[in-house]
Simulated assay, not measured.
Amino acid sequence: MIALLLIQAADAPAVPVDWDTLAPMPYVSAPEMTPQLNAFVGGEVAAGRCALPKPADGHYVVRVDVAALIDGSGVIRKTVPHAIACPTVEQYAAGLVTGFARGNLNLRASASGTWYRATIVFDWRG
């Protein structure tokens, strides 16, 4: 079983170095950020688990880019969040991308998989 996973991982294309060249995530319907989704990130910042300076006006905007490898059947095989010095929020954003993509992608088939970029924007008042 482990050998099979290692073989599959070896077949996956490497994460591109220049994320600006990645096509945007091909969502059918753009995801909507809810107050509950933003509240998690606000809680992480308030608890001191993220090193973000407090904005003068108290309005936080945190962007997390996530690279997602999608196979030919539309399944996300791997997500890689861009580091923002807050691992819990990075992983949270990667999970959101996976959830937002489920049954919501307009893809061109690619047997080996294609990397896309999604940007999650958390926006709240602290």
Rank of each mutant, 00 (worst) to 15 (best):
A10M: 13
A10D: 04
A10L: 09
D11N: 12
A12L: 11
P13D: 07
A14D: 12
V15L: 15
P16L: 02
V17K: 12
V17S: 13
V17A: 14
D18S: 13
W19A: 01
W19F: 03
W19G: 01
D20W: 01
T21R: 15
T21G: 08
T21P: 00
L22W: 09
A23E: 09
P24W: 05
P24K: 08
P26A: 01
Y27P: 03
Y27Q: 02
Y27K: 04
V28R: 11
P31I: 07
E32N: 09
E32P: 03
M33I: 12
M33Q: 12
P35K: 06
Q36N: 13
Q36C: 12
Q36I: 09
N38S: 13
A39T: 09
A39D: 09
A39P: 00
F40E: 04
F40C: 05
G42R: 14
G43P: 08
G43W: 10
E44F: 11
E44S: 14
V45Y: 08
V45C: 11
V45G: 06
A46I: 15
A47F: 07
G48Y: 14
R49W: 08
C50S: 06
A51C: 08
A51P: 00
L52V: 03
K54G: 03
P55L: 05
P55S: 09
P55M: 10
A56N: 04
D57M: 06
G58I: 08
G58M: 03
G58E: 12
H59F: 08
Y60K: 03
Y60I: 07
V61Q: 10
V61W: 06
V61P: 00
V62S: 05
R63G: 05
V64T: 01
V66G: 02
A67N: 02
A68S: 07
L69R: 00
I70G: 00
D71Q: 07
D71V: 02
D71N: 15
G72C: 03
G72N: 07
V75Q: 04
V75C: 01
V75W: 00
I76K: 02
R77W: 02
K78S: 04
T79L: 04
A83M: 01
I84Q: 14
A85W: 09
A85Y: 13
P87I: 12
T88Y: 03
E90W: 01
E90C: 04
E90N: 05
E90I: 03
Q91M: 15
Y92T: 01
Y92I: 03
V97Y: 05
T98G: 06
T98M: 09
G99F: 08
G99C: 13
G99Q: 13
